[in-house]
Amino acid sequence: MTDALVLDGVTKRFGKNVAVDSMSMNIPQGSIYGFLGPNGSGKTTTIRMVMSILYPDEGTIRILGQPNAESVKDRLGYLPEEKGLYKKMKTAEILAYFGTLKGMDRHEAKRKASDLLDHYGLGDRKDAKCESMSKGMGQKVQLLGTIIHDPELVILDEPFSGLDPVNMELMRDVILSMKKGGRTVIFSTHVMAQAEQICDAILLVNKGRKIIDGPITEVKKTAGGGIMLDYTGDGAALHGLPGVQRVNDSGQHAELILEDDADPQEILRQLVDKVTVRRFDIREASLHEIFVRAVGGKVDE
């Protein structure tokens, strides 16, 4: 399988600040790829370089087999983190406009815009001006504008941030259906849990540097085991358990990171005495834990 996107040693500096530091990655066609890292870790800069909005200082990018995005813009869909619509335009119009900008025929774009709005429950808002739409509807229209031309590669920058639960679901559906159609989806996020649910492969980045990348199953193998715990009681009791390396405590929920030779049964036994256990789940460590371990500190979310 060919790669939809290849980055090789891409570096971008803003003055003395290195925003992206010799980043390399291969993203196979047809996959959902998560680009993870805290805010300010260089995700958006990398994406902007991929989109040829910024140019790298060093390194090369190959996108859909081309050295830069200029010549393949019509085959790309891009949803930036900072996004908006023309307030005075009607929803169907603006979708069709985005479509024609991507090289679609005017009629085809109009028809497709109308179909998409029907399909995603905005059929009665075709003639509504964008300024009259709720924030959630606006987000929907923005997403539809990104995929109206059925792009081969979709790049979404923080697509889940600020979405209501309904649109969150919609976003997930769209990403999954793109994959079903053999398309490649790359999205960035700083919320690890989202990536964990739908990504085939991920790349973890911090301060402009790659920490780890690969298929999600392999990435997880590197981290060893853990226990997911839902509990009620005093969180202090979670500390000092035998074989527990570290605790990521969220009050009602905690992740216990185990040493290699830890005995989960013993841990459960001791826990039952101290707190009320509502769920006890032995599993691989979460991406969050992997990330924390890799950076060796607290994640700055």
Binding site: M51, E70, K73, Y78, L79, P80, E82, K83, G84
Partner: peptide
């Protein structure tokens, strides 16, 4: 207006 609407980056993915 386009700048404050944050629509520019969306457009830049389609046009130079």
């Amino acid at each position: 207006e386009e700048k404050s609407n944050r629509i520019l980056e969306v457009l830049l993915s389609s046009v130079s």
